[in-house]
Design a protein around this nucleic acid. Sequence first.
DNA 1: CTCAAACGGCAAA
DNA 2: TTTGCCGTTTGAG
Length: 155
Amino acid sequence: MAILTGSCRFGLWHVHVAWQDDLVYRVRFARDGIPGRVPEEILRYCSGRPADLSSLKSVATEGDTTFAGIYRAVLTIPCGETVTYGEVARMVGTAPRAVGAAMARNPTPIVVPCHRVVAKTGIGGFSPDLAIKEILLGMERRGDVCTPKKREVNR
DNA sequence: CTCAAACGGCAAA
DNA sequence: TTTGCCGTTTGAG
C-alpha cells in the first residue's frame, strides 16, 4: 500500500499532505493544489471546523534525536495556547535556537503545531508566510477548530 | 541600543 | 567531510 498524497484548501493557500492511514509524512503550504485526498481531520481543521489532530501521528516525532524530542514537546501544547521557543527548549533541555531551527524544518506543520511556538518578544516566524501563523492562532484562540468543544459549555 | 555566543540537524559543496 | 544556514535568547559592552 503506497503513501497517498493530496491537498485541501486553506484560505488563499493549499495544504499538501503525504500520508498513510494515521501516519503523516509531510505537510506543506503551497499556492497550488494537487489531486488526491488528505486525512479527514486535516480537512476539518483547514475548513475551520473542530478537528481532533491527536488522532494523527507524525514521522517527525519518531526517533530519539533532539529534534524528535522537541516535536514531541510541541505536541503537548494545547489548542488555543502558545509557548515560547525558550520554554520549549527548557522542556527538552536544549537551546532556544535549536528549537527555532527545528520549527523551521518541521516536516509536518499543523500535525506538529509549530505555529503555537512563539518568540518571547513577539509572534516569531513562520514559513512560507507569517500570515498563515496568525490565521492559525486566531482560529485556535477563538476555539473554532479545538476539540473537545467543552468551550461552549462554560461560557 | 548592538553584538556575539550557545545549539542541532540538514543540505549543498 | 566541511560550511553555512536558520522561525531565539541572554548577557555584556
